[in-house]
């Protein structure tokens, strides 16, 4: 069984700094595999371990994305395909999905594509569904349990207050939520071996056909949010502090 897992290299949002004008300092910012994608990789590797086959790590990003790819390889990826797009050429979500779908078509004979519920930096959560549309494949979203017999994929999905079991024929695309599993920590040996595994580089331009969807969607600005909170701490015994807090809430008019 050939499984493609979609992995995004994301800026570490907790470490990201703003410059004096309030824009994020992305140049040289620390990156890592998007946190939720670790659950995607874990699920793909688990399915491979159970059913045999390969896990192909597929990433779209700049040269810095090699780090995320290696992290995914250390978790058990068999090989990797890196769609190289410099920041200036970074497509919108639809363009990203189109290029990933094109890359999957090139890989050929893919049984299952696994994505996560969203990226930790933008959290748009749409690329998996869009890839499925471009490939005209069934898509099961937000799976918390994934099983396959090589013919069909069956997932449990908790959504809208209901748990559903959904089933689709392979090939298919599935997105997993982080409840699905606990990602493994690779051993030092696995990290070292992963560093030597081949990564195939594919320039993004080579994937863009005449049907590339140019939607004119652009990020106009990114600015830091200012959180102005009162940050008042009430002290005293629990009873005293609680009374002061109750008083403050009454004054705020939120009771």
């Amino acid at each position: 069984m050939n499984i493609v897992v979609l992995v995004k290299s994301a800026v570490d949002e907790a470490e990201l700094k703003a410059d004096q004008s309030g824009h994020p300092v992305l140049k040289g910012a620390a990156t890592k595999m998007s946190a939720f994608d670790m659950n995607g990789v874990e699920e793909a590797v688990k399915l491979k371990e159970k059913n045999g086959g390969t896990v192909i790590v597929l990433t779209l990003g700049g040269p810095e994305a090699k780090k995320a790819i290696k992290e995914a390889m250390a978790m058990g990826g068999t090989k990797a395909v890196h769609v190289l797009a410099e920041a200036a050429d970074a497509p919108d979500s639809l363009g990203t999905a189109y290029c990933l779908a094109q890359a999957i078509k090139r890989i050929g004979a893919v049984d299952l594509v696994v994505s996560s519920e969203g990226a930790s930096d933008t959290y748009q959560g749409e690329v998996g569904a869009m890839v499925a549309e471009f490939l005209d494949l069934p898509f099961i979203a937000y799976a918390k349990k994934v099983e396959t017999d090589g013919v069909k994929v069956r997932c449990e999905q908790g959504l809208r207050g209901t748990v559903r079991v959904l089933e689709a024929r392979l090939p298919a695309v599935v997105s997993v939520v982080s409840e699905a599993n606990v990602p493994r920590y690779p051993t030092l040996l696995q990290v070292m071996v992963a560093g030597k595994k081949a990564i195939e580089d594919v320039p993004i331009a080579s994937l863009k056909g005449p049907d590339y969807p140019d939607t004119g969607t652009v990020v106009v600005d990114v600015s830091v949010q200012s959180a102005s909170r009162k940050r008042v701490i009430f002290d005293g015994t629990p009873e005293e502090a609680a009374r002061k807090l109750a008083g403050a809430l009454k004054q705020e008019g939120v009771l």
Binding site: E13, D121, T122, Y123, G216, T217, V218, V219, V222
Partner: peptide
């Protein structure tokens, strides 16, 4: 919201969208 809600991205698209 982007970057864990620490930043705001302003995004524009042609119509329809």
């Amino acid at each position: 919201d982007v970057y864990g809600g620490r930043f705001t991205a302003t995004v524009a698209s042609r119509l329809p969208c």
